[in-house]
Design a protein around this nucleic acid. Structure first.
Length: 467
RNA sequence: GGCGAGUUGGCGGAGUGGUGACGCAGCGGAUUGCAAAUCCGUGUACAGGAGUUCGAUUCUCCUACUCGCCUCCA
């Protein structure tokens, strides 16, 4: 069996991956807060951990991997949208409007991530459906002395967990020294964080032993992973911005509730995304969503390919130039594998690269090898493993859907050019050749005649001017 | 201020204690009326300094610079 090596943030080293139960490899990834469309940065962990999911399924068998990715649908921005809608006269209770907002955002998220070739996780739990488990977990933490109630809040007693700060390499004292956060007066210690907080009448809330309220952010992942994967499981993933405080707090909660279970064995964090060399932010004007990009005609496969071109633990720069290159490469490969039947074997080199801490850039270089060796079956199967092709070659890469008019016009102009060349009227022949280029038509002359294709920049009026 | 990550050829981007991935661009050749596409060939890069070593881009230390987190942003 293929040996998988993964970099474990918790030990800061790459180590051999040994599942607790090879018949049920379990992975939890922190999913989105569903307050709006997913931006491009949200796509990175999705693609990274989807690739890992595919690798695990390949190695252990599709039925022996359980992948959980949550939706966080308890959030002030969701509430704000719901309240704004109610003010605008939308019917229904606040709870219903909150639910509607999450529902539509989740639907968008799934549509967008599907387009990126990401498989749906085994479970996609919503935080609001696990409130009972969270309440039980919080009560357990209080009973064990790791949490306390104060002014309607329940807080986690950070000093009660000696391992706090291990994952992110911080000491509690250092963090307090450098803290820039205002400390709530009811906290025993500045580092203590909220497990449960009270909700006023104008906010969604649930009944609890501590009054009507809502959970803090971190407790949901502890509760849902425990419910769906057990008190210990194999891999926990997310963006490296979650390393602290989110994952640190998750560890504290889960380890204190189940001191002997071990919680997650391997912690994996993807680096952040940049756009044209800069952090993506609304103020810089380089902020866009996955949906924006798809709507502009950038195919999901192209986005995925660009992402896989950088190792997940390095910052990744999204550029228009990369997207263009990715489109060309994929289109070439799609044309090459058109005749492959899809029953080929996945290339061992591709698997080996992935098994080495998801070295996707190296895996892509192996795809280039397969293409150069004309191993179309292997290329197709390997593209499939990487999620760069589904059952069929995507429509955008096939023969461009061209209306009959345009086809006839191009064919006629090609005939004219062939005649001009035969008659040594090179002025006209070159005029047509250059005109095709300007119009966005690629002409490929071969021994048995000319073939053509349209670039995304194809412009029909420019072509018609050639007549 | 604290913690962490990084700095590889024109660009992107892997990797390794000693045979200089891979892609794009460029250059040379084949081909072409000239081109495009294609095919063949082609690159003496590892931030700076010191150290360890027979030998370092790869290990250690220092310096510079970049970036991320410390704010319920992946």
């Amino acid at each position: 069996m293929t040996e998988i090596r993964l970099y474990n943030t918790a030990t800061r080293s790459k180590q051999l991956f040994k599942p607790l139960d090879p018949n049920n490899v379990r992975m939890y990834v922190c999913g989105p807060t569903v307050y709006d469309r997913a931006h491009l940065g949200n796509a990175r962990p999705v693609i990274v951990f989807d690739t890992l999911y595919r690798l695990l399924r390949h190695v252990h068998g599709p039925d022996h991997v359980t992948y959980v990715r949550n939706f966080t649908d308890v959030d002030d921005k969701i509430n704000a949208t719901a309240m704004a809608r109610r003010q605008a006269g939308a019917p229904g209770s606040l709870e219903q409007l909150v639910r509607e907002r999450s529902d539509e955002t989740i639907r968008w998220y799934r549509e967008d991530m599907d387009r990126l070739g990401a498989l749906r996780p085994t479970h996609e739990p919503r935080a609001t459906e696990y409130i009972d488990q969270m309440v039980a977990l919080i009560a357990d933490l209080i009973a064990k002395g790791h949490a306390y109630e104060a002014e309607g809040h329940v807080l986690f007693r950070v000093r009660s967990y000696a391992g706090y700060g291990r994952l992110s390499g911080r000491s509690v004292d250092d963090m307090i020294a450098g803290a820039r956060v205002e400390v709530a007066p009811f906290k025993e210690d500045p580092m203590d964080f909220v497990l449960w907080k009270p909700s006023g009448d104008d906010l969604p809330g649930w009944g609890s032993p501590w009054g009507r309220g809502r959970p803090g952010w971190h407790i949901e992942c502890s509760a849902m992973s425990q419910e769906l994967l057990g008190t210990s499981f194999d891999i926990h993933g997310g963006g490296n911005d979650l390393q602290f405080p989110h994952h640190e707090n998750e560890i504290a909660q889960s380890m204190c509730a189940h001191p002997d279970a071990g919680f997650a064995q391997v912690w994996m964090h993807n680096e952040m995304l940049q756009v044209e060399g800069k952090k993506m932010s609304k103020s810089l004007g380089n902020f866009f969503t996955v949906h924006d990009l798809l709507a502009q005609g950038v195919p999901g496969e192209v986005i995925r390919f660009v992402f896989l071109g950088t190792h997940y633990r390095k910052p990744m720069d999204w550029t228009a130039e990369k997207a263009q290159g990715a489109r060309r490469t994929l289109k070439k490969w799609y044309a090459e594998i058109a005749l492959a039947d899809g029953r080929g074997e996945v290339d061992a080199g591709v698997v080996a690269s992935l098994a080495n801490d998801l070295n996707t850039p190296e895996a892509i270089s192996k795809l280039h090898d397969l293409s150069a060796r004309q191993d179309w079956h292997g290329l197709r199967a390997s593209l499939r493993l990487l999620g760069l092709i589904g059952r069929n070659v995507p429509d955008w890469a096939g023969d461009s859907p061209v209306d009959a008019n345009t086809t006839a016009l191009i064919e006629a102009l090609l005939v004219e050019r062939a005649e001009a060349r035969r008659n040594k009227d090179f002025a006209r022949a070159d005029q047509l050749r250059d005109g095709f280029v300007t119009a966005g038509v690629i002409i490929m002359d071969g021994a048995e005649g000319s073939t053509w294709d349209l670039t995304p920049e194809f412009d029909k009026s420019t072509l018609e001017a050639l007549k």
